[in-house]
Amino acid sequence: MSNTYKTTVNEEHEFEVSRDQLSQLDAVPTSPDSYHILEDNSSIKATVVSSDFSKKTYNIQVNSNNYEVVIKDEIDILIKEMGFTVGGSKQLNNLISPMPGLIIDVQVSAGQEVKEGDTLVILSAMKMENSFVSHTDGVIKAVHVVKDDAVDKGQLLVEFEEEK
């Protein structure tokens, strides 16, 4: 598991921040939502104005400027790369291979209804079996692989029908 977070500020600036960098930060809480930070001999006042933990978005006021910050960890990035979109409606449009490997089992077919938690595909990679399950109820639109197929990272494996 990586010790790095990817942050996006105001949808235009991206930064990688390590856990080590966070632990070195000279920040002192002044109230439940406010912090006093010292950085390069400068004093910074930061307040968490609002937060949405499910979307990992935060509105932060630094001195007198407001910033929208989105924080993603390795799991969030992997979920996005795999084609899963989990939110209020839990939609799943595509299952994309997160790594190269060999398909050792396909447990769904086009037109099949699946429930959340049902296994879709089992992929062997780096001497490990990886089971990919449905993160929502839905109907399979197409299956693009069969048993014993070699797949590349980013390859489309299973496609779901669009919700109506």
Rank of each mutant, 00 (worst) to 15 (best):
Val106Asp: 08
Ala110Ser: 15
Gly87Val: 06
Thr119Tyr: 06
Met99Ile: 01
Val108Arg: 08
Glu113Ile: 11
Asp118Arg: 13
Gln112Trp: 04
Ile122Val: 14
Gly88Gln: 06
Val106Met: 04
Leu92Pro: 02
Leu120Met: 11
Ser124Arg: 14
Gly83Arg: 09
Val106Ser: 08
Gln112Gly: 10
Ser89Leu: 09
Lys115Gly: 14
Val108Ile: 02
Leu95His: 09
Asp105Pro: 01
Ser89Cys: 05
Ile96Leu: 06
Ser97Arg: 03
Ser124Glu: 15
Ile104Asn: 03
Leu92Gly: 04
Val106Thr: 08
Ser109Ile: 12
Glu116Ile: 15
Lys80Met: 07
Leu123Tyr: 13
Gly88Thr: 00
Gly111Gln: 10
Ser124Gly: 11
Phe84Met: 12
Leu95Glu: 12
Gln112Ala: 04
Gly101Pro: 01
Gln107Ala: 10
Gly101Met: 04
Asn93Ala: 07
Val108Ala: 13
Thr85Val: 07
Met99Pro: 04
Glu81Met: 13
Gln107His: 08
Lys80Cys: 06
Glu116Gln: 15
Asp118Asn: 12
Thr119Phe: 06
Gly88Tyr: 03
Val114Gln: 09
Lys90Pro: 04
Met82Asn: 14
Gly87His: 01
Thr119Asn: 03
Glu81Arg: 15
Lys80Arg: 05
Lys115Arg: 12
Leu123Ile: 09
Met99Glu: 12
Ser97Met: 03
Val114Gly: 10
Glu116Gly: 13
Ser97Ala: 13
Thr119Pro: 01
Asn93Gln: 05
Pro98Leu: 05
Ile122Gly: 10
Asn93Ser: 14
Glu116Ala: 15
Gly87Met: 02
Thr85Ala: 13
Asn94Leu: 13
Leu92Asn: 07
Leu120Pro: 00
Gln91Val: 10
Thr85Pro: 02
Pro100Cys: 07
Ile96Arg: 05
Asn93Thr: 02
Ala110Asp: 13
Gly87Pro: 04
Val114Leu: 10
Lys80Gln: 04
Pro98Cys: 00
Gln107Glu: 11
Ile96Cys: 02
Gln107Gly: 02
Glu116Leu: 11
Leu95Cys: 03
Asn94Cys: 07
Met82Thr: 00
Val106Trp: 00
Asn93Asp: 06
Asp118Phe: 12
Ile104Gly: 08
Leu95Trp: 10
Ser97Val: 09
Asn93Lys: 09
Pro100Phe: 11
Gln91Thr: 09
Ser109Ala: 15
Ser89Ile: 10
Leu92Glu: 08
Leu102Thr: 01
Met82Val: 15
Val121Lys: 06
Leu123Val: 14
Gly111Thr: 01
Leu120Arg: 05
Gly117Ser: 12
Val121His: 08
Leu120Val: 03
Pro100Tyr: 14
Glu116Thr: 05
Lys90Ile: 12
Met82Lys: 02
Pro100Gly: 00
Ser97Tyr: 05
Met82Pro: 06
Leu123Ala: 13
Gln112Tyr: 04
Gly117Ala: 09
Asp105Lys: 10
Glu116Asn: 15
Val106Glu: 00
Ser97Lys: 05
Pro98Lys: 02
Met99His: 06
Gly87Gln: 03
Met82Gln: 03
Met99Trp: 06
